[in-house]
């Protein structure tokens, strides 16, 4: 295996007594699209800022191309970042913004102008070079920010929630632009987001972070179908989680006994909402628990039903419109939930 482009080794970051990043070990390969995903305050942005040299790790090492970067100041790194606020310079024109990095590297005027214009052209902004930033639309600014970061031909591009300020329809379009760019350039993208759909749509590998630690690393499918921890299971997808001691293939949960194919001892299982079906009567075979109907939510072509078990635990079941009209659920009405035991994902407790 070749040496990774970036290696975080036991990296910790503390602010006062609070840990923003507890202990991070992560390798990022050349040419991959990695998404760092998690709720706000999970340390994903801090991780990205440490990689750009905008924060110093409290301990541990960050290496890029095998070189320890801890003491290399931000301006001596080649780690351009696309900011959530975009951070375009309002007192410079579009082309001056794009040129900025080249100018700082001492590239002569004619050369840097040519390269900047080439990038503006590539981003579909030919003819906009003399504009002021406040004369551009949100999508155009986004592309200026990308051009500004990519004009120096870096080995990697860092992106900090770059799409969060855009309208929904532009987000989808920019996702396409980003994945295409990454494939064409063949460079590494490190993309921080709290949005599952963005991460899963674009990334080769997703790193899920929670409270300053990595919870799971994997491709979108693995993370979606086989969450390693309860945190991941709750953060991604619509999952139901059952927990309890297993003995002789039966788990004793707070909602009743459930057959599980795993060894004895404490365990947790994840039952995806799209594998659950609802019925009024107890199914003849297979696992089943009872819960009272709460409400339904239309999610595009499917409907999510929310139910509450006797102990207060909430369950989700995904049904079609036809199934829902057959069931005719009333709030408070009891239903049986069942699922295919072979499609259950078992986590360690």
């Amino acid at each position: 295996m070749t040496e990774p482009l970036v290696r975080f080794h036991e990296v910790k970051k503390r602010y006062g007594s609070a840990f923003a990043v507890k202990s991070l070990d992560l390798d990022i390969q050349r040419g991959e699209f990695v998404a760092l995903m998690g709720p706000s305050g999970c340390g994903k942005t801090t991780t990205l800022r440490m990689l750009a040299g905008l924060e110093q790790p409290t301990s541990g090492t960050i290496t890029i191309n095998g070189k320890v970067m801890n003491d290399v100041p931000a301006h001596q790194r080649d780690t351009p970042l696309v900011w959530q606020s975009l951070a375009l310079f309002p007192f410079l024109s579009v082309v001056e913004n794009v040129e900025f990095g080249l100018r700082m590297r001492g590239i002569d005027t004619a050369d840097r102008r040519e390269r900047a214009l080439k990038w503006l052209d590539r981003m579909g902004l030919a003819g906009f070079e003399a504009r002021r930033i406040d004369q551009l639309s949100g999508g155009q600014r986004q592309r200026v920010a990308l051009a500004r970061s990519l004009v120096t031909e870096p080995e990697m591009l860092l992106l900090d929630e770059p799409l969060s300020a855009l309208d929904a329809h532009l987000v989808i379009r920019m996702q396409g632009v980003l994945t295409k760019l990454q494939r064409e350039l063949g460079i590494t993208f490190v993309y921080v987001t709290h949005s599952q759909s963005e991460a899963f749509a674009m990334a080769d590998r997703v790193v899920i972070m929670g409270q300053g630690e990595i919870e799971q690393i994997g491709n979108p499918r693995e993370i979606f179908r086989a969450p390693k921890t309860r945190f991941v299971a709750e953060f991604v997808g619509r999952n139901n989680i059952l927990a309890g001691p297993v003995s002789g293939g039966v788990m004793t949960t707070a909602q009743g006994p459930v057959p599980v194919a795993t060894a004895d001892g404490p365990a947790q299982i994840v039952v995806a909402a799209d594998t659950v079906s609802l019925s009024r009567d107890r199914p003849a075979q297979g696992p089943a628990i009872q819960a009272a109907f709460l409400s339904e939510e239309f999610a595009g072509t499917v409907i999510i039903c929310y139910l509450e078990a006797a102990d207060g635990t909430e369950f989700k079941a995904q049904v079609t419109e036809a199934q829902l009209s057959a069931l005719q659920p009333e709030p408070g009405q009891p239903f049986w939930l069942t699922w295919d035991a072979s499609r259950v994902h078992v986590m360690k407790a």
Partner: peptide
């Protein structure tokens, strides 16, 4: 962010 962006783009 503007100041950090300048560092990030290689400005001393």
């Amino acid at each position: 962010n503007l100041i950090e962006a300048a560092w990030n783009l290689g400005a001393t």
